[in-house]
Amino acid sequence: MASDICRRAVEVIGDGVPSVEGSLTGYHHETYAFTLSVEAGASFGERWKIREPRERLLWFDRRCFASEYYLLHSLQRSIDVVPEVAPVGGVELQRFVEGVTLGERHPSGEAVPGVVFEQILELFRQLIAVTSDTLVVKQKCKPRDRVEDGDSAGFLERLIWFTQECVYGQNLPEYEDLFTNLGLGLNSFEYLRNHVDGLTSRPFCLLHADLHRENFILDSAGKVWVIDWELAMLGDPLYDLATHLHLMRYPAQQEREIIQRWCAIAEEVREGSSEGWIEDLPRLLDYKKAQSLFTDVIRETQSLVVTGRLDRRRLREASSKVWDVLWPAAEPLGLTSRPSLLEIEAALLRWGRRDAAAHT
Results as ranks from 00 to 15, higher is better:
residue 4 D to T: 04
residue 5 I to F: 08
residue 7 R to Q: 15
residue 8 R to Q: 10
residue 8 R to V: 05
residue 11 E to L: 11
residue 13 I to F: 03
residue 16 G to Q: 05
residue 17 V to A: 00
residue 18 P to Y: 07
residue 29 H to F: 13
residue 29 H to G: 08
residue 35 T to S: 12
residue 41 G to K: 10
residue 41 G to C: 13
residue 41 G to A: 15
residue 43 S to K: 08
residue 66 A to I: 01
residue 77 R to S: 15
residue 81 V to H: 05
residue 84 E to A: 12
residue 93 L to W: 01
residue 95 R to G: 00
residue 100 V to F: 07
residue 104 E to Y: 11
residue 106 H to P: 03
residue 111 A to W: 00
residue 117 F to R: 06
residue 118 E to S: 13
residue 119 Q to I: 02
residue 119 Q to H: 09
residue 121 L to N: 07
residue 123 L to F: 13
residue 125 R to G: 00
residue 127 L to K: 02
residue 135 L to H: 01
residue 139 Q to L: 10
residue 147 V to A: 03
residue 152 S to K: 08
residue 155 F to L: 01
residue 158 R to E: 04
residue 159 L to W: 08
residue 164 Q to I: 05
residue 169 G to E: 00
residue 171 N to C: 12
residue 172 L to Q: 09
residue 172 L to S: 06
residue 175 Y to S: 04
residue 180 T to F: 14
residue 181 N to I: 04
residue 187 N to S: 15
residue 198 G to L: 05
residue 210 D to V: 04
residue 215 N to D: 07
residue 215 N to H: 09
residue 223 K to W: 13
residue 224 V to I: 15
residue 227 I to Y: 06
residue 230 E to N: 00
residue 231 L to W: 09
residue 234 L to T: 00
residue 238 L to C: 07
residue 243 T to S: 13
residue 245 L to A: 02
residue 245 L to K: 04
residue 247 L to A: 03
residue 251 P to S: 11
residue 251 P to D: 11
residue 254 Q to G: 14
residue 259 I to G: 03
residue 260 Q to F: 09
residue 267 E to F: 13
residue 268 E to I: 04
residue 273 S to A: 12
residue 277 W to E: 02
residue 282 P to H: 11
residue 296 D to Y: 09
residue 299 R to C: 02
residue 316 R to Q: 13
residue 317 E to N: 11
residue 325 V to F: 07
residue 334 G to E: 03
residue 335 L to I: 07
residue 338 R to Q: 13
residue 338 R to A: 11
residue 341 L to K: 10
residue 347 A to Q: 01
residue 358 A to F: 10
